[in-house]
């Protein structure tokens, strides 16, 4: 087993386990902390895929900004623990797990339908991946081919900011 494979298996196991732990915790804070662990292991996975830029952004934006926002809101609302999951298992819960498993089957099928040619071309990482992931190349493409969606993103973020301020404003004193 190559060292790369071992790193991949460890990171994948950490991310899946932390995701499962995250949805089963009763306390929102521990749930959020497991989500941060998940994000960090994902950043490691991006590094093994030679996507340095995405890995750094993952840590900065997700583990940094978004999760701090989530933790801050949890703290602001002063939430108590939910009833343990086992106590509230109903028929609807079993049905939702069943539907999720059906979705899993569908996804595996979809990968199967990709066809042998595409999958055969994906047996190893493309040599271009080494270049593609660098900040230099990402910036180059972002400001040439993808400059219009990039500008649209700024409008989206502005409207989201305004929307958040308006929604969180105190309306009913």
């Amino acid at each position: 087993m190559s060292s790369e494979l071992i790193v991949f298996i460890v990171l994948a196991a950490v991310s899946v386990l932390s995701a499962i732990l995250m949805i089963t915790r009763a306390n929102p804070v521990s749930s959020a902390l497991f989500l941060i662990l998940n994000f960090i292991s994902l950043a490691g996975l991006y590094l093994t895929l030679h996507a340095q830029f995405v890995a750094i952004i993952q840590i900065l934006v997700y583990a940094g900004a978004i999760m701090v926002l989530v933790l801050f809101v949890i703290m602001l609302l002063n939430l108590e623990d939910e009833a343990p999951l086992r106590m509230q298992l109903t028929k609807r819960h079993y049905a939702s797990v069943l539907f999720a498993l059906l979705t899993l089957v569908l996804l595996v099928q979809a990968i199967g339908w990709l066809g042998g040619d595409t999958l055969a071309g994906m047996q190893q990482q493309s040599p271009r991946a080494l270049v593609n992931g660098t900040v230099e190349h990402i910036g180059d493409v972002l400001f040439t081919a993808y400059v219009f969606p990039f500008l649209l993103t700024s409008i989206l973020l502005l409207s989201a900011m305004l929307g958040a301020v308006v929604l969180a404003k105190k309306r009913f004193p």
């Binding site: 996507a51 830029f53 995405v54 493309s126 190349h137 989206l156």
Partner: peptide
């Protein structure tokens, strides 16, 4: 994106993160 040698996937990840 990494296995197909195409940078479009990483650009899409960037926009997904913004959204």
């Amino acid at each position: 994106s990494s296995y197909l040698g195409n940078e479009a996937g990483q650009m899409f990840v960037f926009f997904v993160m913004a959204v």
